[in-house]
Simulated scan of single mutants.
Amino acid sequence: MRRLLPLFALLCCLPLQAGELLTYPRHSEGENPEAYVVELLRQALDKSGAGHRLQASDKPMPQSRAQLSLEQNDGHLQVMWTMTTREREQNLLPVRIPIYKGLIGWRVALVREEDRDWLASVRNLAQLKPMRIGQRADWPDTHILRSNGLQVITSQSYDSLFRMLDAGRFDLFPREVVVAHDEQQRASAAGLKLVVDSHIVLHYPSAFYFFTSRARADLAADLQRGLEAMIADGSFDRLFEQYHGEHLRKARLDQRQVIELQNPDLPEQTPFERSELWYRPSAPK
């Protein structure tokens, strides 16, 4: 009996719920372009109290492959994040808290350095239609842009899109306002002559969510609980400001011409009634 006491003491010190190791899809090789989302996910899991741990997939995965993995609940992934669509909410389980506060639908354009003032005279959607826009083939934005009558050139590779723009394969690469300047700096370090346009911003209503398999309502509930706790204690807003405050100030959305687009893929359940979940830019000029 005495020999069992140390083991009993050790067991008493272990957490009541060890949780599980959750895998998310790595976005690309090298520096993580989505460090904010990973940190938000990590903190939400901590706040959930479920004891889950987090790791990236061994290799980068396109969204289409990650979605299929979750649809099949094959065990390779347990969570991903992406823009919501009607189809995705039918096949996956969304956690309906917009992790970018809706800013995923505010897009500024990367353009070639020699074209930095090319968009200065653009005032409406019709003036954008002759231009070629770059996007990855499996991004929901591709369908949104095409449904608004815009020309879209696609690639299967995120990294190749920057090289394609530099080479003149298309004319502009709309990017989330919260990542555009970091992406431009990485492209510049790689020798590409790209700049962030300062004249226009594309806008369409959208939300970026965490998604799980529909068979994992338990995990979705853990994520919801953790994110709601972060909203309640202010840590969500603090993290958002830490990663994106300077980007938003640099983007000067209130000084740009806003080009409004329709989003035919936006589900009716998008929680616009919860004003605390959304970033509200100043009134555009």
Rank of each mutant, 00 (worst) to 15 (best):
H244N: 15
I231V: 07
V201C: 06
V196L: 09
R163L: 08
R26D: 00
E176Q: 14
S188K: 07
R163I: 04
E183H: 07
L128Y: 01
L41W: 01
A251G: 10
R112K: 10
L165K: 02
L119Q: 00
D74S: 14
Q55N: 14
S198I: 00
R186S: 08
A35E: 15
F170T: 06
S213F: 04
P174S: 00
P6D: 11
F173T: 01
W139E: 03
F236G: 00
R136H: 11
V196A: 04
G191H: 03
A229L: 08
T142L: 08
L10R: 10
H199D: 06
G168Y: 04
A66P: 03
I153K: 01
M164N: 06
W118A: 15
Q269D: 14
A50K: 12
A56D: 11
R280S: 11
V196I: 13
L172K: 01
A44D: 03
S160R: 14
L4V: 07
L150F: 03
A283Q: 11
P284H: 05
A50D: 07
L261Y: 03
D117M: 06
M80L: 15
K59V: 15
L277T: 03
L11H: 10
A215V: 05
T270D: 04
R116C: 05
L219K: 01
F208V: 04
T270P: 05
Q156I: 15
R214V: 07
E228P: 02
S64V: 12
A232S: 15
T212L: 02
H76G: 09
Q257S: 15
S157R: 13
R249C: 02
A207M: 02
E31G: 11
Q17D: 06
D138W: 01
Y158K: 03
A56T: 07
Q269C: 08
L227Y: 04
D115Y: 05
G51Q: 06
R214G: 05
W278M: 02
R96Q: 13
E246P: 01
L40E: 01
G19C: 02
L41S: 01
E241Q: 14
